[in-house]
Amino acid sequence: MEKKYAITVDDLTVAYNYKPVLWDIDLAIPEGVLMAIVGPNGAGKSTLIKSILGIIKPIAGSVKIFGKPYKKQHQEVAYVPQKGSVDWDFPTTALDVVMMGTYGSLGWIKRPGQKEKKAALEALEKVGMLSFKSRQISQLSGGQQQRIFLARALVQNASIYLMDEPFQGVDATTEKAIINILKELRKAGKTLIVVHHDLQTVPEYFDWVTFLNVKKIATGPVKDIFNDGNLTKTYGINYKVSVQE
């Protein structure tokens, strides 16, 4: 049986200056998985995501989304950047940020209308932020800002979701709320790729995992490859994680 891959990465190498940030990465991500990318700081996790999205131009290698280049497939992909990558003092409201998720399908010049607003409100409701829709974004807490970013991606109604540390700086309640939404998306057949830092929760949250430290260490189902051996290879120290079944 031939498996359908949502994302295939071939021989991807990225360098900002001289030192490679990603070295010869091969990756085939099957459709419908909820995958964690784990690795130490500076392992190139964000870079990998940005390269898949075409934000960073690689030195070598290629990325295919459902077999085609990203440029042709951007409507299939939703991106949740790191919360810290934008200026939250920007003069706009929560609803307005979520509306940005509709810009891609609108294309150039066309303005969002009632339909787009309705979709944005629904997404806000899904992440439990409807009552904050008119809030200036600087007046949201870190967890709320993260939910707004998630809502913005939900509005895109994509098949693939790439998320850069969506659990960073959020409290336990928000983390649970977000992971429930992610699991729901997977149930609906979506593919989710999440940069994740908390190794303890990997087996609980994810069914697929990629170990990354400049090179790809391993990738596959969590139950098969999430073990001390791969963790040690990735983090360079003797790593022991208590996996709760």
Binding site: L53, G54, K71, S85, F90, M100, Y103, W108, R111
Partner: peptide
């Protein structure tokens, strides 16, 4: 006025704008 939406997106989150195909 013509590129209002695009400029807003560029100002707030350029990477995201790129990921949307702009």
């Amino acid at each position: 006025l013509v590129f209002w939406k695009e400029f807003k997106l560029l100002l707030f989150d350029a990477d995201y704008a790129k990921s949307l195909g702009f």
